[in-house]
Design a protein around this nucleic acid. Structure first.
Lengths: 147, 147
DNA sequence: ACGTTCATGTCAAGAGTTTGACACACAGCG
DNA sequence: CGCTGTGTGTCAAACTCTTGACATGAACGT
Protein backbone atom coordinates (compact mmCIF):
# COMPACT_ATOMS: atom_id res chain seq x y z
CA UNK A 1 0.00 0.00 0.00
CA UNK A 2 1.00 3.60 -0.39
CA UNK A 3 2.55 2.95 -3.77
CA UNK A 4 3.75 6.53 -4.37
CA UNK A 5 4.70 8.53 -1.31
CA UNK A 6 6.92 11.03 -3.11
CA UNK A 7 4.31 13.49 -4.46
CA UNK A 8 2.96 15.19 -1.36
CA UNK A 9 -0.84 15.11 -1.54
CA UNK A 10 -2.50 18.23 -0.12
CA UNK A 11 -4.24 16.55 2.81
CA UNK A 12 -1.06 14.75 3.85
CA UNK A 13 0.76 18.06 4.09
CA UNK A 14 -1.74 19.18 6.70
CA UNK A 15 -1.33 15.92 8.58
CA UNK A 16 2.44 16.29 8.51
CA UNK A 17 2.19 19.85 9.79
CA UNK A 18 -0.06 18.82 12.66
CA UNK A 19 2.09 15.80 13.42
CA UNK A 20 5.34 17.75 13.64
CA UNK A 21 3.72 20.47 15.74
CA UNK A 22 2.08 17.96 18.07
CA UNK A 23 5.28 16.03 18.75
CA UNK A 24 7.20 19.25 19.30
CA UNK A 25 4.50 20.42 21.71
CA UNK A 26 4.77 17.11 23.56
CA UNK A 27 8.55 17.28 23.92
CA UNK A 28 8.45 20.96 24.89
CA UNK A 29 5.94 20.16 27.61
CA UNK A 30 8.22 17.43 28.92
CA UNK A 31 11.18 19.78 29.23
CA UNK A 32 9.27 22.87 30.42
CA UNK A 33 7.13 21.19 33.10
CA UNK A 34 10.16 20.66 35.39
CA UNK A 35 10.77 24.41 35.12
CA UNK A 36 7.24 25.16 36.32
CA UNK A 37 6.01 26.41 32.95
CA UNK A 38 3.41 25.10 30.51
CA UNK A 39 3.98 25.44 26.79
CA UNK A 40 1.30 28.13 26.59
CA UNK A 41 2.92 30.07 29.41
CA UNK A 42 6.31 29.81 27.74
CA UNK A 43 4.89 31.03 24.43
CA UNK A 44 3.29 33.94 26.27
CA UNK A 45 6.57 34.94 27.91
CA UNK A 46 8.43 34.48 24.63
CA UNK A 47 6.13 36.78 22.66
CA UNK A 48 6.11 39.28 25.50
CA UNK A 49 9.90 39.31 25.54
CA UNK A 50 10.24 40.00 21.85
CA UNK A 51 7.52 42.69 21.93
CA UNK A 52 7.66 44.37 25.36
CA UNK A 53 4.79 46.58 26.49
CA UNK A 54 2.34 44.78 24.25
CA UNK A 55 -1.35 44.46 25.15
CA UNK A 56 -3.10 41.25 26.20
CA UNK A 57 -5.27 41.17 23.09
CA UNK A 58 -2.31 41.57 20.75
CA UNK A 59 -0.54 38.88 22.73
CA UNK A 60 -3.52 36.59 22.20
CA UNK A 61 -3.42 37.19 18.46
CA UNK A 62 0.27 36.31 18.24
CA UNK A 63 -0.29 33.13 20.23
CA UNK A 64 -3.39 32.24 18.17
CA UNK A 65 -5.67 31.93 21.19
CA UNK A 66 -8.72 33.91 22.35
CA UNK A 67 -8.38 37.03 24.49
CA UNK A 68 -10.07 35.22 27.36
CA UNK A 69 -7.63 32.32 27.33
CA UNK A 70 -4.70 34.73 27.27
CA UNK A 71 -6.30 36.66 30.11
CA UNK A 72 -6.43 33.68 32.47
CA UNK A 73 -2.94 32.72 31.35
CA UNK A 74 -1.67 36.18 32.28
CA UNK A 75 -3.48 36.08 35.63
CA UNK A 76 -1.59 32.90 36.48
CA UNK A 77 1.72 34.42 35.40
CA UNK A 78 0.95 37.53 37.42
CA UNK A 79 0.32 35.40 40.50
CA UNK A 80 3.72 33.82 39.95
CA UNK A 81 5.29 37.27 39.74
CA UNK A 82 6.43 36.79 36.14
CA UNK A 83 4.42 39.52 34.42
CA UNK A 84 3.20 42.95 35.51
CA UNK A 85 0.38 45.07 34.09
CA UNK A 86 0.65 48.86 33.84
CA UNK A 87 -1.68 50.61 36.31
CA UNK A 88 -2.75 53.43 34.02
CA UNK A 89 -4.60 52.36 30.91
CA UNK A 90 -3.54 53.56 27.49
CA UNK A 91 -5.38 54.97 24.49
CA UNK A 92 -8.06 52.29 24.04
CA UNK A 93 -8.56 50.98 27.55
CA UNK A 94 -5.46 48.90 26.96
CA UNK A 95 -3.00 48.04 29.71
CA UNK A 96 0.59 47.26 28.72
CA UNK A 97 2.07 44.01 29.97
CA UNK A 98 5.74 43.62 30.86
CA UNK A 99 8.11 40.90 32.04
CA UNK A 100 9.55 41.05 35.53
CA UNK A 101 13.33 40.52 36.01
CA UNK A 102 12.51 37.14 37.48
CA UNK A 103 10.64 36.26 34.30
CA UNK A 104 13.62 37.25 32.17
CA UNK A 105 15.75 34.81 34.11
CA UNK A 106 13.15 32.05 33.90
CA UNK A 107 12.71 32.70 30.20
CA UNK A 108 16.47 32.39 29.72
CA UNK A 109 16.45 28.90 31.19
CA UNK A 110 13.31 27.95 29.26
CA UNK A 111 14.82 29.16 26.00
CA UNK A 112 17.84 26.97 26.57
CA UNK A 113 15.63 23.94 27.21
CA UNK A 114 13.47 24.63 24.16
CA UNK A 115 16.50 25.22 21.97
CA UNK A 116 17.81 21.84 23.01
CA UNK A 117 14.54 20.17 21.97
CA UNK A 118 14.29 22.02 18.67
CA UNK A 119 17.95 21.24 18.06
CA UNK A 120 17.15 17.56 18.50
CA UNK A 121 14.26 17.96 16.08
CA UNK A 122 16.41 19.44 13.31
CA UNK A 123 19.50 17.41 14.15
CA UNK A 124 19.32 15.30 10.97
CA UNK A 125 18.99 18.42 8.81
CA UNK A 126 21.89 20.57 7.56
CA UNK A 127 21.77 24.27 8.37
CA UNK A 128 20.70 25.18 4.85
CA UNK A 129 17.61 23.00 5.13
CA UNK A 130 16.73 24.45 8.53
CA UNK A 131 16.68 27.89 6.95
CA UNK A 132 14.61 26.52 4.08
CA UNK A 133 12.11 25.02 6.53
CA UNK A 134 11.76 28.35 8.35
CA UNK A 135 11.24 30.18 5.07
CA UNK A 136 8.63 27.71 3.82
CA UNK A 137 6.70 27.74 7.11
CA UNK A 138 6.62 31.52 7.13
CA UNK A 139 5.40 31.51 3.53
CA UNK A 140 2.59 29.06 4.35
CA UNK A 141 1.56 31.06 7.41
CA UNK A 142 1.50 34.35 5.53
CA UNK A 143 -0.39 32.84 2.60
CA UNK A 144 -3.34 32.03 4.89
CA UNK A 145 -3.09 34.94 7.32
CA UNK A 146 -5.28 37.32 5.34
CA UNK A 147 -7.98 35.21 3.83
CA UNK B 1 17.53 44.24 18.24
CA UNK B 2 17.36 41.19 16.06
CA UNK B 3 20.28 42.34 13.90
CA UNK B 4 20.34 39.21 11.76
CA UNK B 5 16.99 37.54 11.10
CA UNK B 6 18.18 35.24 8.30
CA UNK B 7 19.65 32.43 10.43
CA UNK B 8 16.59 30.77 11.92
CA UNK B 9 16.96 30.74 15.71
CA UNK B 10 15.72 27.52 17.33
CA UNK B 11 12.84 29.08 19.27
CA UNK B 12 11.58 30.92 16.22
CA UNK B 13 11.33 27.67 14.32
CA UNK B 14 8.92 26.38 16.94
CA UNK B 15 6.91 29.58 16.74
CA UNK B 16 6.77 29.32 12.96
CA UNK B 17 5.62 25.71 13.18
CA UNK B 18 2.86 26.58 15.63
CA UNK B 19 1.87 29.64 13.62
CA UNK B 20 1.51 27.77 10.34
CA UNK B 21 -0.40 24.94 11.97
CA UNK B 22 -2.70 27.32 13.85
CA UNK B 23 -3.62 29.34 10.77
CA UNK B 24 -4.20 26.18 8.77
CA UNK B 25 -6.40 24.84 11.56
CA UNK B 26 -8.34 28.09 11.54
CA UNK B 27 -8.95 28.05 7.79
CA UNK B 28 -9.81 24.35 7.82
CA UNK B 29 -12.37 24.99 10.52
CA UNK B 30 -13.93 27.75 8.44
CA UNK B 31 -14.36 25.49 5.41
CA UNK B 32 -15.33 22.32 7.29
CA UNK B 33 -17.90 23.84 9.66
CA UNK B 34 -20.40 24.41 6.81
CA UNK B 35 -20.08 20.69 6.05
CA UNK B 36 -21.00 19.80 9.62
CA UNK B 37 -17.54 18.58 10.57
CA UNK B 38 -14.98 19.86 13.06
CA UNK B 39 -11.28 19.66 12.23
CA UNK B 40 -10.83 16.89 14.79
CA UNK B 41 -13.71 14.93 13.30
CA UNK B 42 -12.27 15.36 9.82
CA UNK B 43 -8.85 14.17 10.97
CA UNK B 44 -10.49 11.16 12.57
CA UNK B 45 -12.32 10.24 9.38
CA UNK B 46 -9.18 10.87 7.33
CA UNK B 47 -7.00 8.54 9.40
CA UNK B 48 -9.79 5.96 9.50
CA UNK B 49 -10.07 6.06 5.71
CA UNK B 50 -6.40 5.51 5.11
CA UNK B 51 -6.22 2.71 7.72
CA UNK B 52 -9.62 0.95 7.73
CA UNK B 53 -10.50 -1.42 10.56
CA UNK B 54 -8.15 0.35 12.94
CA UNK B 55 -8.81 0.49 16.69
CA UNK B 56 -9.83 3.60 18.63
CA UNK B 57 -6.57 3.67 20.60
CA UNK B 58 -4.41 3.48 17.48
CA UNK B 59 -6.59 6.17 15.96
CA UNK B 60 -5.93 8.35 18.99
CA UNK B 61 -2.17 7.88 18.64
CA UNK B 62 -2.24 8.92 14.98
CA UNK B 63 -4.25 12.02 15.81
CA UNK B 64 -2.04 12.85 18.80
CA UNK B 65 -4.89 12.94 21.30
CA UNK B 66 -5.78 10.78 24.30
CA UNK B 67 -7.86 7.61 23.95
CA UNK B 68 -10.65 9.26 25.92
CA UNK B 69 -10.84 12.27 23.63
CA UNK B 70 -10.92 10.01 20.60
CA UNK B 71 -13.61 7.93 22.30
CA UNK B 72 -16.03 10.83 22.72
CA UNK B 73 -15.17 11.97 19.20
CA UNK B 74 -16.09 8.54 17.84
CA UNK B 75 -19.31 8.49 19.87
CA UNK B 76 -20.35 11.70 18.18
CA UNK B 77 -19.47 10.37 14.75
CA UNK B 78 -21.35 7.17 15.52
CA UNK B 79 -24.43 9.19 16.45
CA UNK B 80 -24.18 10.91 13.07
CA UNK B 81 -23.98 7.52 11.36
CA UNK B 82 -20.49 8.16 10.00
CA UNK B 83 -18.58 5.40 11.78
CA UNK B 84 -19.50 1.90 12.93
CA UNK B 85 -17.84 -0.30 15.54
CA UNK B 86 -17.50 -4.04 15.08
CA UNK B 87 -19.75 -5.97 17.50
CA UNK B 88 -17.32 -8.77 18.25
CA UNK B 89 -14.13 -7.71 19.93
CA UNK B 90 -10.75 -8.75 18.64
CA UNK B 91 -7.59 -10.09 20.21
CA UNK B 92 -7.03 -7.49 22.94
CA UNK B 93 -10.54 -6.35 23.76
CA UNK B 94 -10.23 -4.16 20.71
CA UNK B 95 -13.16 -3.28 18.48
CA UNK B 96 -12.41 -2.33 14.89
CA UNK B 97 -13.85 0.97 13.64
CA UNK B 98 -15.00 1.47 10.07
CA UNK B 99 -16.40 4.23 7.87
CA UNK B 100 -19.99 4.03 6.66
CA UNK B 101 -20.73 4.70 2.97
CA UNK B 102 -22.23 8.01 4.02
CA UNK B 103 -18.94 8.91 5.70
CA UNK B 104 -16.98 8.08 2.54
CA UNK B 105 -19.13 10.54 0.64
CA UNK B 106 -18.83 13.21 3.33
CA UNK B 107 -15.08 12.64 3.49
CA UNK B 108 -14.85 13.10 -0.27
CA UNK B 109 -16.40 16.55 -0.04
CA UNK B 110 -14.30 17.43 3.00
CA UNK B 111 -11.10 16.35 1.26
CA UNK B 112 -11.92 18.63 -1.65
CA UNK B 113 -12.49 21.57 0.70
CA UNK B 114 -9.29 20.88 2.65
CA UNK B 115 -7.29 20.46 -0.53
CA UNK B 116 -8.50 23.85 -1.66
CA UNK B 117 -7.29 25.43 1.59
CA UNK B 118 -3.94 23.67 1.56
CA UNK B 119 -3.57 24.58 -2.08
CA UNK B 120 -4.06 28.21 -1.14
CA UNK B 121 -1.45 27.80 1.57
CA UNK B 122 1.21 26.45 -0.78
CA UNK B 123 0.14 28.54 -3.75
CA UNK B 124 3.27 30.74 -3.69
CA UNK B 125 5.53 27.67 -3.60
CA UNK B 126 6.66 25.63 -6.64
CA UNK B 127 5.98 21.91 -6.57
CA UNK B 128 9.59 21.08 -5.74
CA UNK B 129 9.41 23.17 -2.57
CA UNK B 130 6.12 21.60 -1.54
CA UNK B 131 7.80 18.20 -1.69
CA UNK B 132 10.75 19.60 0.24
CA UNK B 133 8.42 20.95 2.94
CA UNK B 134 6.72 17.56 3.28
CA UNK B 135 10.07 15.81 3.55
CA UNK B 136 11.41 18.24 6.16
CA UNK B 137 8.25 18.06 8.27
CA UNK B 138 8.35 14.27 8.24
CA UNK B 139 12.02 14.35 9.24
CA UNK B 140 11.29 16.70 12.16
CA UNK B 141 8.36 14.58 13.32
CA UNK B 142 10.34 11.36 13.17
CA UNK B 143 13.34 12.91 14.93
CA UNK B 144 11.20 13.57 18.03
CA UNK B 145 8.85 10.59 17.83
CA UNK B 146 11.01 8.20 19.83
CA UNK B 147 12.63 10.32 22.50
C1' DA C 1 -1.57 -23.98 34.63
C1' DC C 2 -0.67 -19.71 36.91
C1' DG C 3 0.73 -15.11 37.82
C1' DT C 4 2.60 -11.06 35.65
C1' DT C 5 2.56 -7.75 32.26
C1' DC C 6 0.66 -5.01 28.79
C1' DA C 7 -2.99 -2.88 25.96
C1' DT C 8 -7.76 -1.73 25.16
C1' DG C 9 -11.99 0.48 26.53
C1' DT C 10 -14.46 3.22 29.83
C1' DC C 11 -15.84 6.18 33.93
C1' DA C 12 -15.09 10.30 36.68
C1' DA C 13 -12.78 14.64 37.76
C1' DG C 14 -9.97 18.44 36.62
C1' DA C 15 -7.72 21.86 33.74
C1' DG C 16 -7.67 24.64 29.52
C1' DT C 17 -10.05 26.79 25.76
C1' DT C 18 -13.82 28.66 23.08
C1' DT C 19 -18.16 31.04 22.44
C1' DG C 20 -21.39 34.57 23.63
C1' DA C 21 -22.29 38.60 26.01
C1' DC C 22 -21.59 43.06 28.24
C1' DA C 23 -19.46 47.69 29.66
C1' DC C 24 -16.02 50.93 28.66
C1' DA C 25 -12.92 53.94 25.76
C1' DC C 26 -11.32 56.02 21.82
C1' DA C 27 -11.52 57.26 16.58
C1' DG C 28 -14.11 58.73 12.64
C1' DC C 29 -17.96 61.11 10.54
C1' DG C 30 -22.65 63.16 10.23
C1' DC D 1 -21.69 67.92 19.62
C1' DG D 2 -23.73 63.30 19.09
C1' DC D 3 -23.72 58.87 16.81
C1' DT D 4 -21.72 54.88 15.01
C1' DG D 5 -17.95 51.71 14.65
C1' DT D 6 -14.07 49.44 16.34
C1' DG D 7 -11.07 47.54 19.94
C1' DT D 8 -10.03 46.30 24.74
C1' DG D 9 -10.97 43.96 29.01
C1' DT D 10 -13.98 40.94 31.69
C1' DC D 11 -17.72 37.75 33.34
C1' DA D 12 -20.26 33.42 32.70
C1' DA D 13 -21.45 29.13 30.46
C1' DA D 14 -20.40 25.39 27.29
C1' DC D 15 -17.28 22.59 25.15
C1' DT D 16 -12.97 19.90 24.46
C1' DC D 17 -9.11 17.62 26.12
C1' DT D 18 -6.22 15.70 29.71
C1' DT D 19 -5.18 13.16 33.85
C1' DG D 20 -5.98 9.45 36.98
C1' DA D 21 -8.15 5.23 37.86
C1' DC D 22 -10.42 0.80 37.12
C1' DA D 23 -12.01 -3.66 34.94
C1' DT D 24 -11.39 -6.78 31.12
C1' DG D 25 -8.87 -9.69 27.87
C1' DA D 26 -4.91 -11.55 25.79
C1' DA D 27 0.22 -12.51 25.48
C1' DC D 28 4.33 -13.77 27.87
C1' DG D 29 7.47 -16.10 31.30
C1' DT D 30 7.83 -19.22 35.11
Amino acid sequence: MNVATSPASPEELGVLLKGAQSVLHLRMDECLRPLGLSVSQYACLHHLHQAPGITASDLARRAFVSRQAMSVLLQGLERQGLVARAEEQGPRRERAMSLTPRAEAALHDADRAVSEVVGRMVAPLPQSERDTLARLLAACRDALLDG
